[in-house]
Design a protein around this nucleic acid. Sequence first.
DNA 1: AGCAAGGCTTAGATAATCTAAGTCTACAAA
DNA 2: TTTGTAGACTTAGATTATCTAAGCCTTGCT
Lengths: 191, 191
Amino acid sequence: MTYRFPSLNGLKAFEAAARHLSFKAAASELGVTAGAISQQVKRLEEALGISLFRRLPQGLLLTKEGEAYLPEVSKAFDLLTDATERVAPAMNGRKLSIGISQSILDKLPKGWPRHSPDLDPYVRETRVSDDVELIWTNDLDALLLDRSTRHNGLSEQEVCMQNCIEPLFFVTRPGLANCRQSRAIISELEC
Amino acid sequence: MTYRFPSLNGLKAFEAAARHLSFKAAASELGVTAGAISQQVKRLEEALGISLFRRLPQGLLLTKEGEAYLPEVSKAFDLLTDATERVAPAMNGRKLSIGISQSILDKLPKGWPRHSPDLDPYVRETRVSDDVELIWTNDLDALLLDRSTRHNGLSEQEVCMQNCIEPLFFVTRPGLANCRQSRAIISELEC
DNA sequence: AGCAAGGCTTAGATAATCTAAGTCTACAAA
DNA sequence: TTTGTAGACTTAGATTATCTAAGCCTTGCT
């Protein structure tokens, strides 16, 4: 198995440019400048050792090789896109489901998190629970616990609320520990 | 079409780690350290908003989502690998085919480039030609001409040989202008 | 107990990538 | 013919992303 793999950015740039037959249009689609596309495509051609485009003064044309490459690259990206959407429907834009242990319910402002409009975009639902297993099954995104879970592979952040002596523990999967949603929730708790 | 796309490196790291169920083994396969794999996977999980692995003290396990994701990601990589090998059989390791215009044949050391063992790894064949079209069709990788081709979308580098007043022009597709092979040939010419 | 394996985190270095600004050619309208 | 526009290109420098290196923790073996 070889891992001298062309870069994703290069392939993305090629795919978009080939569809539009224009670096400028590809750039706008991908939200970068045309110079970036030009460089990416050039690097890709360099890595492959062949030309993918003919640069005519009138615009772009695919070479025979580019023509052959495009449909397969597109197909691979479609596959990845579909698989990604299936496994992570809303990518990073989604709201979290949070479990709260019974014992700390009354430490939180009543109605939390509904009382704070800041958290609306980040919290889908809350539920009374302290079962870390629900995190591993992706049924919950985070837990608010009153004691440390220690050493089980989850991320755990200590949260000190303003009017409370004992800290809370914000527990998530490692990957979610530092996402926008988690940061918003923690900073709201710390008021 | 969405372009909030997980990074290729992240997906590569996930795919290798999921196959081996080990960050260390994946790292060795990809030629990086385990820390890099760990970070890549974490970033990917962050981007997707889900866990792909369960990190048990005994080692890695795939979550349900990781299990579902793996085969599709693998398939996409296989597609890209196959397509890439088809369109660029030897990736960047191949030797160049060089066209030399009749008029400068006698300016070169006799037997060029065979006289120089340095160029062996970089030159497959030479042929007498000055037809830039052969470059666009990928039949030739480069041309050595005695005059500038000006403004046709190809890259052109002026080469000044030691014992020669008039310069040569090393003409390639844009993507090949700065590759290892081209650099070796040009620096050999400039002696 | 002591050690190795294999996770994890972090800072800092390195490398990849992007932007911005300027060049050039072709084409079309005045 | 001249002028304006569009879209390619290059380059330097800034910004990001990524990697390494070093140290920590837990498990399981000897």
